[in-house]
Simulated scan of single mutants.
Amino acid sequence: MMKDKFSQELYSIRLAYNIGVFSKEYARNKFALLYARTFGGASGIYREMALCDFEECFRD
């Protein structure tokens, strides 16, 4: 269940960015909040994504 909600939120942020609703900086912040809320701000997954500036989130 958590994965489905996470995937849906990830998709909706990416879609909003791709159609121009969100700026790249705003989308990056939304990705950061989503990852922190889902995995925890101190998790390895969050740290790895933060080091890559969440660029992976922008790709399908």
Results as ranks from 00 to 15, higher is better:
4 D>M: 05
15 L>S: 13
38 T>D: 00
4 D>T: 07
55 E>P: 00
48 E>V: 05
11 Y>D: 13
54 F>H: 04
19 I>T: 12
51 L>N: 15
46 Y>W: 07
6 F>C: 02
35 Y>K: 01
15 L>G: 03
19 I>H: 05
9 E>N: 12
14 R>Q: 13
15 L>Y: 15
12 S>G: 00
41 G>W: 06
53 D>K: 13
46 Y>H: 07
52 C>L: 14
48 E>F: 07
60 D>S: 13
7 S>N: 14
6 F>W: 03
6 F>E: 03
33 L>E: 15
33 L>Y: 11
21 V>T: 14
32 A>P: 02
59 R>K: 14
51 L>S: 15
48 E>W: 09
34 L>M: 01
6 F>R: 00
49 M>Q: 15
28 R>A: 05
7 S>W: 02
31 F>H: 01
43 S>M: 06
27 A>F: 07
33 L>C: 10
12 S>N: 12
38 T>S: 09
27 A>W: 06
56 E>D: 11
28 R>E: 11
13 I>V: 13
6 F>T: 04
20 G>D: 02
30 K>D: 12
16 A>Q: 10
31 F>E: 01
60 D>P: 08
42 A>N: 15
31 F>A: 02
31 F>Y: 09
17 Y>C: 00
58 F>L: 08
22 F>T: 01
41 G>I: 10
34 L>G: 02
33 L>W: 10
23 S>Y: 02
27 A>Y: 09
12 S>W: 10
17 Y>K: 04
27 A>G: 05
37 R>H: 12
7 S>G: 01
46 Y>M: 10
59 R>I: 08
25 E>I: 04
17 Y>L: 02
33 L>V: 11
1 M>D: 06
59 R>N: 12
23 S>E: 07
40 G>D: 09
22 F>N: 10
56 E>W: 08
37 R>W: 06
57 C>E: 08
31 F>L: 03
25 E>T: 07
51 L>C: 06
52 C>I: 09
45 I>D: 10
42 A>K: 11
28 R>Q: 13
19 I>N: 05
15 L>P: 00
12 S>V: 10
5 K>Y: 13
2 M>L: 15
14 R>V: 08
55 E>R: 12
11 Y>N: 11
54 F>G: 05
14 R>T: 06
45 I>Y: 11
20 G>C: 05
23 S>M: 00
20 G>L: 03
55 E>L: 06
51 L>P: 00
6 F>K: 00
43 S>H: 03
13 I>G: 04
32 A>D: 02
39 F>T: 00
58 F>T: 09
5 K>N: 11
48 E>H: 09
12 S>R: 08
2 M>F: 14
51 L>H: 11
52 C>N: 14
57 C>L: 03
11 Y>C: 04
2 M>R: 15
7 S>F: 02
57 C>W: 09
6 F>N: 01
2 M>A: 15
35 Y>F: 15
6 F>G: 00
